[in-house]
Design a protein around this nucleic acid. Structure first.
Lengths: 290, 290
DNA sequence: AACAATTACGGAATCCGTAAAAATT
DNA sequence: AATTTTTACGGATTCCGTAATTGTT
């Protein structure tokens, strides 16, 4: 077994090209590195360096050793972080999501023994497998099903987009609207809404979107202007302090296009299925029907 | 970075279930293991064990740590052997094959600077990718093409099976034979002939095969009996000491079935292409045409 | 009483830094 | 002259073994 500190010295040498700079970077003295590389060669039983009195460089085998060493070091690092994530995952249930909606539902979940923690930043669809297998999160809401050897996903519920209009707006009397009918309007929209951003940008022709980074800034704008903005059947679960968004001068009208309805699944490791069962049950139950 | 000796203690504990047995297996004293596991928990920052005064067992996190540790240890081991193989591969060219034929051709190869070493045991087709990427061999003869991200294979030549018959045998006057015509005969065959074994067993109906492990035992039998045996266009490259197999009382007749012709490719790492080019060139050149 | 784990202390092995040397640019 | 690697030696750190302690079965 090769000790890590030797691999670290080797990799640093590959980056710095001299033993002196290696020593400096690792904050030790040159002789330490000299001995380290001698020991590494000795333990591996292969020649890693071409040596001249004033010059030392990697052999082909040495370069191959560097490649392997980099991987071993990265794997060791990964092992530690994975394990800490795993430990964390098993003292509480960490939930993430690709879009804001499911957060409101997840907040309603209460478990007897296990705390539930919800990540505020959204994750990207393509990162979900590694985030689960690395135990960074135990359960991730996604709008695309995932099935792999280790991961499965289960239907949780649907979120339908509505538009919130000034009551005197010409569309305000309709029971429902389509994206097409919203053509050309200017909307105030939260900056970070995950895949919804693509949905509205693709489906509402010639619309302008005034993106707001902060939720309270958006609330402020909608209160003192008549810009339309978006709601869903899920945002009704907003906590009371955000209830100011409910405004009598405005009406909420559902959008009927299929693209305005997003289906959410909960993705998790199959090995976690049993542990997560009560959470998933509550989520599906508390999810507002359309 | 976690030191390997701690991971080794952890893995051994998982196998033995008590610190005492762990110590015994690793040939150290119990306190060493106690301290080691304490240090490991401390460095990882997670609880690996449920501890009672007289009892210690892995937590769930501990079990996860064991899985990770096993992999890290195996990877470290693999790193060392890979590197030694790599070093070896770059001081000589190591050649292996799935069938005996190409060995005779490979023996003809002579390079100015690099020695060529030929593995006597045959490898299995499915092991070729790992044998190449682990640098166990640099070039492997196979009868199936291989193309992956790292590996390519190139046509080298064809080997055609002939049958060697007693000159007074009823088929001995023919210019060629088919497998079907050999039906029901008893053949003396070398035990280890790779994929050829399947070929003859599948294609010659009701035949009996008297397998011989040793080449000289087979030579002995064929000399003092009139059992038919097999040759190919490649075995003509046999070194003189085996030339005794050339026997005037016998005739060699080619088998015309497509299955009696085997196509060989040389598989190697794409990164080795340049280094192997002269060998491959010689091989293709010295390969006897059918 | 027997067994398993832990703690305390002293010794051994390993690793490191300082100083000096050797050789090149 | 300046830079780089290597060797020699003494000190510091870490790791280990022996002995003793604690608590359970």
């Amino acid at each position: 077994m090769i000790d890590y500190y030797l691999l670290e010295e080797l990799v640093t040498f590959a980056d710095t090209k001299t033993l002196a700079k290696t020593a400096e970077k690792l904050m030790v003295t040159q002789p330490t590195i000299t001995r380290g590389m001698q020991k590494l060669e000795d333990e591996l039983g292969v020649q890693l360096f071409h040596r001249q009195p004033n010059r030392i460089e990697l052999t082909k085998t040495g370069q191959e050793a560097v490649r392997g060493a980099r991987k071993l070091l990265a794997d060791n690092q990964q092992f530690v972080t994975n394990l800490r994530n795993y430990d964390n995952s098993h003292q509480q249930i960490n939930i993430a999501t690709v879009a804001p909606g499911p957060i409101f539902v997840a907040r309603q979940v209460q478990l007897a023994d296990t705390p539930v923690k919800i990540e505020s930043k959204f994750v990207h669809q393509q990162d979900i497998p590694s985030l689960l297998t690395n135990h960074k999160f135990s359960l991730i809401f996604t709008n695309q099903e995932i099935q792999t050897d280790d991961i499965e996903s289960i239907f949780i519920g649907q979120e339908r987009l509505s538009v919130n209009l000034d009551q005197f707006m010409y569309l305000a009397n309709q029971q429902s609207v389509t994206f097409k009918e919203l053509e050309g309007l200017s909307f105030v929209v939260l900056e970070d809404i995950g895949p919804w951003k693509d949905v509205i940008q693709e489906h509402i022709p010639n619309a302008k979107f005034l993106y707001q980074a902060q939720r309270d800034a958006l609330a402020e704008i909608t209160r003192y202007s008549n810009f339309p903005y978006f709601n869903t059947n899920i945002t009704s679960l907003n906590p009371p302090e955000n209830a100011q968004l409910e405004d009598n001068d405005r009406v909420t009208i559902p959008i009927t296009d299929p693209a305005a309805t997003m289906t959410f699944y909960a993705a998790y490791l199959k090995s976690d299925r049993k542990r997560l069962q009560p959470v998933i049950k509550q989520l599906a139950k508390k999810w507002p029907k359309i």
